[in-house]
Computed example of a mutant assay.
Amino acid sequence: MEMRRGAFQFGYWWIHVTWAGTIVHKVSFSRTGEEADIPLQLRQYLNGKVNGISPLTSVALESDYPYSKIYREVSKIPYGITKTYSEIAEITKTNPRLVGNAMKRNPTPLIIPCHRVVAKEGIGGFTPDIEIKKSLLLMEQKFSKSLNLS
């Protein structure tokens, strides 16, 4: 299957996506970009129109990928809901610091919704800018209320 690349503007950021079929290989953020096709489900999600991105999936969910166990658990966090690093660590029988490292190295944010993982006291981190995480959580919070998902 042919590897494709595209970009979509989300606020002040450009979201760059590399995918083949329904498998997303990379999602990254930058201050620059040029509009190019991205998967429809992701475009709709970023416009606040849908609460899921199915059938898209991440290459990082494959069992031989580093942190795949953590990524699979994070992928189960429902739209509009957050869990703490500690909660994910407890479920995956690891520690919160390792969960944080996995989130920082997540090759496909949005597909594996690392923005839904927060600190016990506060929002936690997000690379490259915490404002992206805040915007995504706010968008999900507003949309989940309008759909009566909360």
Rank of each mutant, 00 (worst) to 15 (best):
E2N: 14
M3V: 15
M3I: 15
R4N: 14
G6V: 04
Q9L: 08
Q9F: 09
G11F: 11
G11K: 10
Y12E: 13
W14N: 08
H16E: 06
H16C: 04
V17R: 09
T18C: 12
G21V: 11
T22L: 11
T22Y: 15
T22N: 14
T22E: 15
I23F: 02
V24N: 03
K26M: 08
V27G: 07
V27R: 10
S28E: 14
S28P: 05
F29L: 12
S30E: 14
E34N: 10
E34I: 10
A36K: 15
D37F: 10
I38W: 02
P39L: 08
L42K: 03
L42D: 06
R43C: 08
R43L: 11
Y45C: 01
L46H: 13
L46G: 02
L46W: 02
L46A: 04
L46K: 07
N47T: 04
G48L: 04
G52E: 13
G52S: 13
S54T: 13
P55A: 12
P55I: 10
L56S: 12
S58F: 08
S58A: 13
V59C: 04
A60W: 00
A60V: 02
A60P: 00
A60K: 00
A60M: 01
L61S: 02
E62A: 11
D64P: 00
D64Y: 10
Y65V: 03
Y67G: 02
I70A: 05
I70F: 04
E73D: 14
S75R: 14
K76H: 06
Y79C: 00
Y79A: 00
Y79F: 15
G80V: 01
I81Q: 14
I81D: 10
T82I: 13
K83P: 01
K83R: 15
T84M: 09
Y85E: 08
I88A: 01
I88R: 04
I88G: 03
T92S: 10
T94K: 06
N95M: 09
N95P: 02
N95L: 07
G100W: 07
N101Q: 14
A102V: 12
K104G: 07
N106K: 05
N106M: 12
N106Q: 09
P107K: 04
T108M: 03
P109G: 06
L110Q: 05
L110P: 04
I111P: 00
I111K: 04
H115P: 07
H115R: 08
R116Q: 11
R116Y: 02
R116N: 06
V117T: 02
V118Q: 01
V118E: 00
V118I: 13
A119Q: 04
K120R: 14
I123A: 04
G125R: 13
F126D: 06
T127F: 12
D129N: 15
I132H: 03
K133S: 03
K134R: 13
K134G: 03
K134D: 03
L136T: 05
L137R: 01
L138A: 12
L138W: 06
M139R: 11
E140F: 10
E140T: 11
K142C: 06
F143M: 04
F143Q: 00
S144I: 03
S144H: 08
K145W: 03
N148Q: 14
L149R: 00
